[in-house]
Design a protein around this nucleic acid. Structure first.
Lengths: 342, 342
DNA sequence: CTGAAAGCGCTTACAG
DNA sequence: CTGAAAGCGCTTACAG
């Protein structure tokens, strides 16, 4: 099979290359006869446009790009899919760019921007730190999804998220209401100013409000995979049988923890209560179903797309908070070994 | 922030564009002084190459591309990652291209080939059907991973897979050995000649060998998601309480089925045994852990990469069969309601 | 409605 | 070791 260029097609159809280009791009200013002839040749040859040449030449940005960091994260991939779905209602075409967990989303933005392909970005699974200065320097509309950009001071960045601090506080409130005072928290790095830090703060808010002390040793930094969480939990519970509840910062982590407890002979929720976060399919179908905080995927997706399109047309940056929902599962129960309070 | 081109860098550094290009691509034929000067300017400007221009110009294929269809499939994404890892041992750079479950992997190949970017392909989550003619017509080395291309007649396609038919047969043998004669099979479309058909055949082989009849109603075509499997199972078990075991064609499907059974008050494995397929993390951490067939990810990845590189250097097509392994879990038990045989 | 020409940002012989 | 020039395959004013 040969590789045809637009010139080959033009020659075969007996027209100029500009005409072929017009047909290919569905421009209206081509006669029906010509269009038909060109189309036939294109199909007969199985011609495929070279996107590199196209993108090189097309200098005005025509895309909005959704950058997803961490392709293994179902919560994020589902969100991206949802965004693509919402985007159909707008004139701007959206593309999704998946990058590795360890890759640099800001570098990816740079690249896309440099190729004048993207006029705006939605960032999923990103965080706001020193490196996000690049967002400010690029100067084009960006939306951080599931991350709060309110205090970031980036003039061109909006954000859509739930109130993570309040959500984590509510989760801890519920554990405390069930009599659990020896709670371990499994999450990401709690320093900085990202979602994990916020959730950590929320959990601490709750404990503080109830006058319960928190032993820093009970904060476990874990990878956000089943295996990672499982191993962290196995290690942790060797020496911490006093714990009666675990607040995990993702459903995946919660599942890994539950399995580890199960192997240690501790039943959930009878012996230990465990909560998750995100509201994924997994939380719903795991046995026991995991109590979790549902981040409203569809709504975050819809708002993010809307916000970006607004900004693309000159709108101001905004920070949108959407409502989270505590979804009861089967993984939390009243503490049996604890003295009843109140 | 400005967009710089290679010309801008050349001007600022007081050299020609060719020299900048040489530095950028790490060519040896540049003096150290010049290299240093150029590098400094590049960094000061935060210059990023335009890949479109680069790829347009670079006409000889330099990549091997791994095309993964279905990004939600952990089994496949893990495999792709593993392949990338193995590829580091070879001179050919590999790239991964994720496409949607519903997208056309052959179209993606065409595009990549058309842009002269890829000199060879590994296909993950593909199938061999009429449309795979395009593979033959492209004529470049291809490897189907986890799919058997032995009978495909495609002269440029190798394959690496387990013996799916034998594996499914072994799974069914084990269920029969546990006394289960009323087994339902949850899988994909069993027609055609792809992995699902092979697994189906394997299951039937076993039943036939043991003289057990199979009611076609007990073959359930399901989506390969937790929700899809859950819903199929809920529907199916409404009217099929005679079933004492389920052979599912993926771990995800098995998990969805187990949850559905649980909600119907049927315990796994006490009331119903369930087997999965693939050997994923999920199977290991689910409660109960799911009996499954482990496809040796690392080995399939390694063999696929090796095979493609061989072919790229003129080697012949080959079909490699790697050993699968039945991984016992906690989801299969002897049938209680069945009359003991033998 | 149509075509010839310029140019997008690179790389790569080619000549020095 | 270095630079000027041609050209990758498109699109887009521009002129007819």
């Amino acid at each position: 099979m040969e590789i045809y260029t637009i010139r080959d097609i033009a020659r075969k159809a007996g027209v100029g290359v500009s005409t072929v280009s017009r047909v290919l791009n569905g421009r209206p200013d081509v006669s029906e006869t010509t269009r038909k002839r060109v189309t036939e040749v294109v199909e007969a040859c199985g011609f495929v446009q070279n996107r590199n040449a196209r993108n090189l030449k097309t200098t005005k940005p025509v895309f909005a790009a959704i950058i997803v960091r961490g392709r293994r994260n179902m919560f994020l991939s589902d969100m991206a899919e949802e965004m693509l779905h919402c985007a159909q209602g707008y004139k701007t075409p959206f593309i999704v760019k998946y990058i590795d967990e360890e890759d640099d989303e800001f570098g990816a933005m740079r690249q896309l921007w440099n190729e004048k392909r993207a006029g705006g970005f939605i960032l999923l699974g990103s965080r706001i730190d020193e490196r996000s200065e690049i967002v400010a320097s690029l100067g084009m509309p960006c939306v951080f999804a599931t991350v709060d950009a309110a205090g970031s001071g980036i003039a061109n960045a909006s954000s859509v998220c739930i109130d993570d601090r309040a959500a984590a506080r509510e989760v801890m409130d519920r554990l405390l209401a069930n009599g659990h005072t020896n709670v371990a928290v499994f999450g990401g790095n709690s320093e900085g100013n990202d979602v994990f830090a916020r959730r950590y703060q929320g959990a601490m808010d709750s404990l503080r409000a109830h006058g319960v002390d928190f032993n820093p040793e009970h904060y476990v930094v874990t990878r956000f995979t089943l295996t990672g969480a499982y191993e962290s939990a196995r290690r942790f519970f060797e020496g911490h049988r006093e714990i009666t509840a675990v607040l995990a910062m993702s459903d995946t982590v919660a599942a890994g923890v539950i399995r580890a407890l199960w192997e240690l002979g501790l039943r959930v929720p009878q012996d230990v209560s465990v909560t998750g976060y995100d509201g994924t399919e997994m939380a719903k179908y795991f046995i026991p179903a995991i109590d979790t905080v549902r981040q409203p995927t569809k709504e975050i997706a819809r708002e993010s797309v809307k916000l970006l399109c607004e900004m693309l047309e000159g709108g101001e940056r905004r920070d949108v908070t959407v409502a989270y929902e505590y979804v009861p599962g089967e993984s939390v129960a009243a503490c049996r070994s604890c003295a009843r309070e109140g």
